[in-house]
Design a protein around this nucleic acid. Structure first.
Lengths: 217, 217
DNA sequence: GTGCGCCTCCCCCGGCCGGGGGAACCGCAC
DNA sequence: GTGCGGTTCCCCCGGCCGGGGGAGGCGCAC
């Protein structure tokens, strides 16, 4: 990505098995390349300095220095890579902390291989991969520390489409509703799924409700 | 259905076009037969007396005598048919009124042909086709008038499955979670969709949230 | 004992969905 | 002007899903 063709990735996780799995997944992609690993937040600065990754896949819970602290340290520097945080639960309190620390995205550990690769690409593109609720809480709770606005999130059209998806409409119905081609709706839905880090429209609906993007009642 | 092979249906709607559409849809099914029509709630008793249907498909908004009143009158008799109410909006206040009047099920007017036929079958089987929220409100608000309990709704297993569907799990994942075969999950999901009167799992999730069956946060 | 409801699993099939590409247009910013 | 993000539409494809059947087991109620 730095050179326009390959996205360089560094893996940070205290479990060697997890790192190995991620490596297999990512190296299988033509456009992705794992250029380094760290098993601890404390090792991160050194590894990143040597490997110069575009994206750091960062676990949260780690011995010694956790992912939050490591993220904060990493992003303090000028040419910092983008940080994609690995979490087990999306409602994890750490998510908010990680956001404040400047993380650019979140990925659930139960994500499927394609989702992992996709998430890395999204983040590498400079977009954020966020759960709307995290963003909203951040915005309403207290203005973000000092880092640049990670606006990203959903475009107007994408939000519109998500809203209809969250009403149970099919792509064809959404297309009719918005006077669009089904292919266009398909594209938007695909982007929404990618940005939300979910697999299918069903999960998108779940997230839409859980995030307050749409409200029950 | 009365004779074990064919379900006799009477259509009640003030719009001839709607009746015609429903007739085409239902008559296309081997096991369903439209045996009468009424364009007004006032005509219902006579038509039903002559046609002796198993199921009455009843519109709510009609001139003179509306669907609610017609339903109430119909169910006062001993050998009353089962009543499937047609509504435009699921949150319609009429839904609750119709429930109190003794309606056995609800069908959205935007339902697809297969859904219509399926809903008729469900109701004809003696099951209820309800939105969980309607049932709950009824239960919490004030005990149903005096008609027999239309318990129906979801079985324990079905509720369990719906809960997992509403977490964004695929059938395969649900199967793994519950130690079941994918086919079994498929069956349960199918039953849930039918009972909820929805088309797909996405809509089931929407209803699960809207009904409070699952709660956001 | 005979049902009936529920749960379980099976087969076939058509359709929608999601992922991989790509391409074109537009407006805005640099 | 060049670039880029957003929007729109296109093709191909594999997979999950939902609908149509059916069947067997099990427990409970009549």
């Amino acid at each position: 990505m730095t050179d326009g063709t390959t996205t360089r990735v560094v893996l940070v996780d205290d479990e060697p098995l997890v790192r190995a799995g991620l490596r297999v997944i990512l190296d299988a992609e033509r456009d992705l390349e794992v250029v380094g690993e760290a098993g601890d937040g404390a090792e991160v600065p050194g590894v990143v300095a040597r490997a110069r990754p575009d994206v750091v896949l960062m676990d949260v819970r780690m011995p010694r220095v956790d992912g939050i602290a490591a993220t904060r340290a990493l992003l303090a520097r000028a040419d910092a890579p983008r940080v994609l945080v690995l979490t087990t639960f999306e409602n994890d309190d750490h998510v908010l902390d990680a956001l404040r620390a400047g993380a650019h995205g979140f990925l659930l550990k139960r994500a499927r291989p394609e989702e992992v690769a996709q998430a890395v690409r999204v983040v590498a593109r400079g977009e954020s991969l966020l759960f709307p609720d995290a963003v909203r809480r951040l915005a309403t709770a207290r203005p973000p520390a000092g880092d640049e606005l990670r606006d990203a999130r959903l475009t107007e059209r994408e939000g519109e489409v998500l809203r209809l998806v969250a009403q149970g409409l099919s792509n064809a119905e959404i297309a009719a509703e918005l006077f669009l081609g089904v292919e266009t709706v398909r594209t938007h839905v695909g982007n929404v799924l990618a940005k939300l880090g979910v697999r299918d429209r069903t999960q998108a609906v779940v997230r839409a409700y859980e995030s307050g993007f749409v409200r029950a009642g």
